[in-house]
Each structure stands twice: as C-alpha cells, then as structure tokens.
Design a protein around this nucleic acid. Structure first.
Lengths: 204, 204
DNA sequence: CGTTGTGTTGACCGTCCGGTCAATGGACAT
DNA sequence: ATGTCCATTGACCGGACGGTCAACACAACG
C-alpha cells in the first residue's frame, strides 16, 4: 500500500528530497495547484527524474499523506488512560501545538485534503482516525464519570483541540496579519492561552 | 473595486447564478482545481457565456472573495462595547457557528484562500480585518480591565472563536467521519460545547 | 420591415501540464 | 575494455483548460 522502500543510497536520498519538495509545494498550492515542474525545481531534479522515482504526481501525493497520518495521530495515541486526566489532556494540547509550530507544512497538507472532502484519504479518516478518536473518547468519558474532569462532549473536546492548535499552522497568514508586531510571539502566547482555556474547561 | 453592478434583469440573474455556481465549485476544488467548464455546467450556462459576464476566471473568484469579506466580518462587527461582556462574546460565538452551518461553502472558500497564503486577499486581511480585530481587542481589554471577564490574550480569544466555529464547516468531512451516527447532531452539540467552553473561559 | 443593442454559443487557439521515450551518463564488477 | 545496471534528461506527445471570435438569436423600437 505504501511506496516501495528505497533500496540504494541514491534512491533513499532522492525519494527523501522529492517528498520534501513535494510537501513544500503541495502544502502551499494544493494538489491541483502544484505542478511537477515546481516540485522538480524545488527538489533540484529534472521532471522525468521525479517520475523515475514515483510513477505519478498522484503517487507522490499519496506517499506524503500515508506517511503523514501516523505522525499526525501519534500525539493523540500517547494520551494515557493511566495518567492524570488534566495533565494528559494538557500534554496532548501541548504536543499538538508543537506539531503546528514544527510541521506547519504537514498541517496545511492535511487541511487541504480534508477541505476538499478527503478524496484521497477517506478510508483512513473513516477508519483509523475515527477509531482512534472513538477509543480516546471512551477514556475521556471514563474520566468524566469518575468526576476527574468536567463533563463535556468528548469528541467535541477533541475537535476543539484540533481546531485550536492547527489554526496556528493552517491560518498562519491571518494570525500574523492580526498580531502584527507580536507576530513572532504567536506560539508562546498561544500556548499560555490554550493552557488557561483547557484548564478552566476541564476543571471538575 | 467590486464588480460593476448589473444593469438589466438578465444580467442580475445570470451574475447571481454564476457566482453561486462558482462558489460551489471553488469552495470544493480550490481556485486552481476549479475549471470554467465545471462552473458553467453547474450554472447551466455555456463557458463563453460566463466570460460574457465576467472578464476572467480570476475576476469571478475575486468578486466572490470581495463580497464574502463583509458578510464574514459582520458577526464580529456586531459585538457591542455597551452590552454585557459575556453575553456579547457568547452571542458572537453563536452567530459565527450559525454561519458555519448556513454558509459552509463560504467558509471553505475563505479557508482555501488563507491556507494558500491569501494571494488574492492579502490587502483586505492586513487592512480591514486586522483593524477590526484591533478594534474589538481593545473592547475586550477594557472589559478585562474592568474585571467583567477573565483576563486572557484578546486576539487569541478571537482566534479561538474563529478556529472553533469554522472547524465545523471547513473540516466537516472529518467531523462527520468521527461522529458517525451522531453526525447529524453535530451543530446542536457543538453549540452546547462552545457555550460551556466560553462561559468557563470568560468567567471572571 | 430594418436597425440596433443585448445575449448566446460552437468552433477554435495557444499554453500549460502530466507523462513517455529514446538516448546518454556513470558506477562497478569481471 | 566491456558489459551491466542504475540514474538522468532533452525532446516530445496528447489532453485539458482559459480565453477569443465570428456568427447567430432575439427583443425593442422606429
């Protein structure tokens, strides 16, 4: 299902270079807006050379999305039923915000895909992602039943974490425009704000 | 700056039809992903006929975005310094969520544009939008100084309202996939969740 | 009826873009 | 050097797409 793993050093290096260039271009222009020529230029390779390593534009995009989903869901996977509820949720928020700061291109690639109705990720969203959320929502519900965090709709709680953290990557341009001179402090201030918000929301 | 206003009945009707079809297609496929043929088909007109009413694909897109910004900012404009702080903010949240429900295509069009770095809206974002936020942030700060709502970063508060409400339109596909059988109840439940969240956050 | 101005469209053009291919380069083993 | 296999690319192809144009439809008015 995933792309065949590289076999030689050169293949490993070039596939890596191509995927990175493709991430750059796809995340900034969307699938349709990106062209192989742009990707090739960013990668410093010729267009036919791209197609020597990947069978099609589509295949490059799919490879990116497939690799992405796992890393994207990891922060949620780490949320541990055995830990302290508030700490666990806040730690999840922190990890997710960190990802928006460190991997904004990945966030935008994902956002682009979902915005268009996830034409190339439907199965993964309805399967893997939905099941993981189901699983974690169950944990949240238990914590709520135990009175260790406030009772709110668990899935909407998770949506709120996604929305609030990814916003800083996906709508970066708007955030910068609004913050103006504070634009560089966006993430520290966002971190404090979200910490406050979720502490208050979850306080039993 | 805006498109010349229609002069005859037929022009008014057809421009309306075209803009509606264009909204449908642009919001679902992005600017680059949309084609004039698709828009023409949705509008029930021929492609040359579109270009009789609008000089180019670009012009249709620009007309949509220009019309959009005003309606998009209206809910925030209504936030009144003279009203009760908590009520005002909550009413804004409610209006914004309502817009996500009633105008998801507009929300996605906007999201697409910002995601790509707002190539065709930069000026409006950095100008009109940023200034409006500056203005309302000042009001929020006064309310905080008066101890009528909790002290949080006012601009991040506004970001949080945008992020949380628009999420339900922009990431609709994901929301539906996660909620599964509750998918149709999304907005009522979201409304309750957001009400709780902002009440707790703002409580002084 | 002819004239004029608004609408409408089939056919076409030039460009862009994803993808192919044949030819060449280059590393390495024998 | 010779053959072999991986890597690279200039040139090209076919289809899609934004946009043009000339011709036509149709109503309003004299």
């Amino acid at each position: 299902m995933t792309t065949a793993r590289p076999r030689t050093r050169i293949q490993a290096r070039n596939q890596e270079t191509i995927l990175d260039a493709a991430l750059e271009v796809f995340s900034a222009q969307g699938f349709r807006g990106a062209t192989l020529d742009q990707i090739a230029e960013v990668a410093g390779l010729s267009k036919p050379n791209l197609l020597y390593y990947f069978p099609s534009k589509e295949a490059i995009h799919t490879a990116l999305l497939t690799n992405l989903l796992d890393t994207w869901l990891d922060p949620l996977r780490e949320m541990d039923a055995a830990g302290d509820p508030v700490d666990e949720v806040l730690a999840y928020v922190r990890r997710k915000l960190q990802m928006s700061r460190d991997f904004p291109r990945e966030s935008r690639l994902f956002a682009n895909e979902i915005l268009q109705g996830a034409p190339r990720m439907r199965a993964a969203i309805e399967g893997e992602l939905a099941e993981l959320v189901e699983d974690k929502a169950r944990i949240l519900r238990i914590w709520m039943d135990q009175g260790r965090i406030a009772r709110v709709h668990p899935k909407h709680l998770i949506f709120s974490i996604w929305a609030l953290t990814q916003h800083y990557a996906d709508f970066d341009m708007q955030v910068r425009a609004v913050l103006r001179d504070e634009a560089d402090d966006a993430f520290p201030a966002a971190g404090e704000f979200l910490e406050t918000l979720f502490r208050k929301l979850l306080a039993p």
